[in-house]
Design a protein around this nucleic acid. Structure first.
Lengths: 127, 127
DNA sequence: CGGCGTTGCTAAATTGATCAAGCGCGCACC
DNA sequence: GGTGCGCGCTTGATCAATTTAGCAACGCCG
């Protein structure tokens, strides 16, 4: 059998529990936090958030909360599933996927050519 | 000098221009990118994104695009205004090539021009 | 007991992201 | 001149995020 985790109807919500525990730790009411975010997050929404009723809260919201609750923004982002636990940016450019390569992925000759062209562009625009 | 910047009605959208220039640089159509994301992002939506019609694209979308276009997820997040540019840029010294530095330090217009030129170079050498 | 403020919650309404479908254009080929 | 095709773009509908309004339970003090 594969690892079909039984997806609970309600989320595996680390985020909600976390928010709730922080808020209680600071001994604030839902409305207190709403105030603390200068109304950027409503108490009603925070309630839903803590109870895992929300799938993808917008980063904007998380940012407000991080300030109001004095926790790290990246921490919330991570718990919301938007960031990997501060992992490395794999220099995966290795596997030479034909279809896609960006400007960071150049052969020596290409790089030389581009640098020349860049010099040309800059010279031209500076005239 | 501390005039408040007049916020243009339309976005200060670096993200859109950036996505557009990268896509063109790779010489892909909107629909090509839609394919590349395995339909996770529609061509219609990508169009709106590039033209700055979207305020808060979901990180999920940005993630798909970052993979399809082979750019860094955090980069897109930052351009979308979700991350502070604070994230230290340290990692990019990976290539250990001096030239890469110069090339990774570009204005949007320069980048676009270079990507075009790169496409041209690659097309030419592949004949 | 009877009001009164507070708290957590939720139903309904609004707003915005996202997509499927389609439009008009330019370009090749007949 | 068609006509077919791929392109970027717009539009209309849909669905989830977020808010507004309100309810029910609690403590508290007269």
């Amino acid at each position: 059998m594969s690892h079909d985790e039984v997806k609970p109807a309600i989320k595996s919500n680390r985020l909600g529990e976390y928010l709730n525990s922080v808020r209680r730790g600071l001994d604030l009411s839902l409305r207190d936090v709403e105030e603390a975010t200068k109304k950027e997050v409503s108490n009603a929404y925070l309630s839903q958030l803590e109870n895992g009723k929300i799938e993808k809260p917008s980063p904007h919201i998380l940012h407000s909360l991080s300030i109001a609750l004095n926790v790290k923004y990246e921490d919330l982002m991570e718990r919301a599933g938007y960031l990997k636990p501060s992992s490395e940016r794999a220099s995966d450019s290795k596997h030479g996927r034909a279809a896609t390569f960006a400007i960071e992925n150049l052969t020596v000759e290409e790089e030389e050519a581009l640098l020349k062209h860049l010099a040309y562009i800059r010279w031209q625009t500076s005239k």
